[in-house]
Design a protein around this nucleic acid. Structure first.
Lengths: 149, 149
DNA sequence: TAAATATAGTTGCTTTTGTCAACTATATTT
DNA sequence: AAATATAGTTGACAAAAGCAACTATATTTA
């Protein structure tokens, strides 16, 4: 019984991996998925967020993140300001350029989803979104955490 | 209205990316996600499947796949037999070892899902699976295809 | 049926992505 | 003030993925 459920969940994960892959492919090659995820978080945290915060949130290696952030700085996508309480850390924010670029990315990705959805009826779309919300809300009550290795 | 839907779908994709990441992380470092996906397909295609089939199905680069298959051969996870109608292609199958190893992998991944689910009620689990099936069946009626770049 | 074109898979080379460990600077704890 | 912890950086490296040229076979076409 539970085995059955697990098998279905695994099947869904595999399937959805490819869905995400197809949609992300479209995200265009200027940024990696990781980079987009970082930009996403910064975009939605306009008050600023530290590198450690991103590491925690997105489960990234700090060295890796550090380099990505450096490249963002070089491209002037972000701005850093040092925390004057704790001089080891910096608050990161998207610059105006960064916000613009991120919005454009969003649009591209959006268009691909529009394309994907174009073959669905309004009702199917509503169902789809409903299912997604259902999954999120159930999983968010679970104790799925990054650090439980 | 539709914008709203798109935003939700994108949010779900981001969220679910991390769910999959967390579950896959557990898949242990012996095989990459791509390798596991390949093994999965071969496992469920006991009659044999060609490299081209895998490329099509999983949207892989043929050079990359070729090397992965070679490593599988070296580890004796798969067996190849040449198609005698078309000598350019080979049917690929998991060997007994390959099947065993894949099953073990499945178990590991299964356990992680059990863990994830352990904090959910039976009813929540049913709902979760129901939503997943809903998404899959809706998307499968859509025209999402690899080759629409 | 010979020449042209297409397809399956391989190989060399490169790029991208990610990991690990050591290190600097600052903070916190004892 | 010494020991320990944390934020972020850097160097070295490994794993994952992509690209293009190539070989061998198949298929199409003139």
């Amino acid at each position: 019984m539970i085995d059955e459920n697990i098998a279905q969940i695994r099947a869904f994960n595999r399937y959805y991996t490819s869905v995400i892959g197809l949609l992300d492919k479209y995200l265009n090659s200027d940024f990696s998925l990781t980079e987009v995820r970082i930009m996403y978080e910064l975009y939605h945290y306009p008050q600023g967020m530290t590198a450690s915060g991103l590491i925690e949130l997105l489960n990234l290696d700090k060295g890796y993140l550090s380099r990505i952030l450096r490249s963002f700085e070089k491209k002037q996508l972000i701005e850093k300001r040092q925390d004057n309480k704790d001089k080891r850390s910096y608050y990161l924010q998207l610059s105006e350029t960064g916000k613009t670029i991120f919005s454009e990315l969003s649009n591209t990705s959006q268009q691909k989803i529009v394309h994907l959805l174009s073959s669905l009826s309004d009702e199917q779309i509503n169902e789809l979104v409903g299912h997604m919300n259902g999954i999120s809300s159930i999983l968010k009550t679970s104790n799925l955490k990054k650090n439980e290795k």
